[in-house]
Write a protein that binds this DNA or RNA. Sequence first.
RNA 1: GGAGAAUUAGCUCAGCUGGUUCAGAGCAUCUGCCUUACAAGCAGAGGGUCACUGGUUCGAAUCCAGUAUUCUCCACCA
Length: 871
Amino acid sequence: MSIAKTYNPREAEKKWYSYWMEHGFFRSTPDEREPYTIVMPPPNVTGVLHMGHMLNNTIQDVLIRRARMQGKNACWVPGTDHASIATEAKVVAMLKEQGIDKKSLSRETFLEHAWEWKEKYGGIILKQLEKLGASCDWERTKFTMDPDLSEAVIDTFIKFYKEGYIYRGVRMVNWDPQGKTALSDEEVIRKEVNQKLYYVRYQIKDSEEYIIIATTRPETIMADTAICINPNDERFTHLKGQSVIVPLINREIPIIEDEYVDMDFGTGCLKVTPAHDLNDYELGQKHNLEVIDILNDDGSLNEKAQILIGEDRFIARKKVTNLLEEAGQIEKIEDYKSQVGFSERTDAVIEPKLSMQWFCKMDKLAKPALEYVENGTIKLIPEKFFASYKHWMLNVKDWCISRQLWWGQQIPAWYNENNEWVVAKTEQEAITEFNQQGKSSSNLLQEEDVLDTWFSSALWPMSVFDGVRNPDNTEFNYYYPTQDLVTAPEILFFWVARMIIMGHDYTQKPPFKNVYLTGIVRDKMGRKMSKSLGNSPDPIELMEQYGTDGVRVGMLLSSPAGNDLMFDISYCEQGRNFANKIWNAFRLVKGWETTEAPATESQKNAAIWFENRFNQAVSEIDEHFSHYRLSDALMAIYKLIWDDFCSWYLELIKPAYQAPIEKETHETVKVFFEKILTLAHPFMPFLTEELWHDELFKKREEKDCIIVAQYPVVKDFDIRLIKDFEIVQQIISEVRSIRNAKGISPKIELPLAINAAGIDFETHRETIIKLANISTLDLVNEKIQGAVSFLAGKSECFVALEENIDIDAERERITKEIEYLKGFLISVDKKLSNERFIQNAKPEVVQNEKNKKADADTKLKILEGSLLNLS
RNA sequence: GGAGAAUUAGCUCAGCUGGUUCAGAGCAUCUGCCUUACAAGCAGAGGGUCACUGGUUCGAAUCCAGUAUUCUCCACCA
């Protein structure tokens, strides 16, 4: 029988994923065990797996698999998000391709198309997550527009409305002219843009004089309703109370005064356009200015502009500039950099626009959500994000929750024929409500707008367990609050904060205990990986190439929480190589014939050492996990397996070529092997499951799978024993190093003599002989003449080489070491003779220095002896 | 403009409340090995004024201040 020399991930991946599914290992139902719950941040239903998802979901899978193996009732709830704007844009684009204009469709027909699209193309990403090994409870898959989740959203709207958090009003909002909807402040991305600053002349009425203003948006001058100057600005004192003529349209507007105007910026004169700028709007409110909105929903000019009607705002900007120039009204044009808002979803330039919207009052709601994080009920990992969380929470603004879209939850508000409105779940209830208020209830129309998608995502940890509609249900009581949330820092406010707010409002509990914020996946040049840059590898292809386990390991090796991850393909290679290393260790153990003989002493000692070393590693790994240092945990496993298990333990017990191994030892190796597989399983689910089922270990029962095997628990270990073995390892390394330096083949046996101090070398005799390839190992009490010597711990070792040793080289080496030790002693002595040190330092520290001195003294004496011995 | 963070080996990063001569890991590099588990490997080796300048301290990669560079978040200056 032959086993492939390299691990082939493909078969194992296919086989085990469906095996796990068929046997229901991912499924979770409430029982007497401790629950461990993660709700997956729902990707957009339009989404396709990218490196960010890969990282994020791998982390979640590692956490959930480990918890499952620790005997917890692990429940990972997957799902998708309806992503109003993105999805609606996709559907509109698709319809356009078919020659259908959204405007020509009724709301119902459009939604039919949208649902059709969703059923057909939506949720590809969930399928892709399977490839990654995601052990979600797929039967719980939710969509934010599922009927029950939608109902939860509507209920919440009504609840918040009744509690006085939701109101409706005309406000300046962020308008996305491409998506044709309002956006929340959080959905606006500000970018620095190279612009022009236009200096435009406005003629003073009944005068030849001009006033010059600076603007970046000349196309809005038709909407100007005042010019504002600073009352303290002496340059303009004579203009107070005058009015000016708006160029091109010759409308008369007043000159007003307000200290808001920065005298040093531009010309010190500001044109006031209340309809198209937030600050101007506020100025307008203060000074009772007229509001002239010259823009249509799509960003083109309307008839109020009087000129260039129907032109897009950016074309209009150019044309207005030309017209102004022709009219001699442009003083100058300067280059200018400024921040411009873009839509997070469509990337269109945001237009401040005055419109009627629904808002959620945030200040009161935010308070308890801040407290949770402040008092540690919810932990942010890493903590550094607390500062910005706090800042946002303290300065939170009201949340614009209405969107002028169809795809989403339609706001449950109803208008009667007099345009009066009530909030009610159904039309029937609305009628009742109107009647109670003594108002007309005929010709009711439901509010056209839908709710912000984040309004529904905010309920996610509750709504997936139906906890909003039915808070007393068993599942909700069992799984909520959830344990860990793994997500990107970018949506800390969008999502995390709002989940905490809603969770608290409903349950008086936080929705989760820990928030692990992953980094951003960047390319080698530090650029964020994105589709538009084309610098992101396709995770699916990566997994094809390196194996899923390899890519998982690669991603996690380099991603401390909250730090961005500079992704490089070589990490995946490292992951693949690691998988292959385990595979080959398995081949070795698998290939051994056994003999009935009992284990040898050295094998037993090796086993004792590895057991202790293993327990030490388990402690370290546990510690890393408790701080969510997944990459450190993984590295500890990597080293335990590669170095300790393969390079030391296996080499140590390995029988001679084609010789059988003692059965007792073989059994022990197998036990260790199973243990390290369980440690590795959360990171490398496929390989470990594949090996677990090999008959080398045993015939497994149908449900005896590593995915539910017992995860190693923290146990005591003997640090002394491990340290002693380190000395042995050092001796072996030194002998190999001597070989290397002298060009002596590893096949040639060398004699070794040890002047042992403090360690029982008999225990390790066989080990040293075997791994360092020693012919004779003598324990001596004196120095050996003409041998190369070195110090391991406090034991001096001698290798007598057949050819003459290079005395000068040896002398130099030893002298160097002596000098080092002397320097060391000087520094220690300096400390110890410093009274202030003795007085101020902790007693342990002082004692430690004393011990160091004693150690160094011993070593120094040995080395000085060696030096004498050479001459 | 405000806030936060970072700067340690060629690369990616550890280094927790100052205390081994403290400078570490992985990868990469170099040298020697096709030693029958693994060349996706084995053995060995080299490599860093801990960004800079001051300060606190018996003692600083670690604490403080300033400087430089970089990043992130927030913010309405036309």
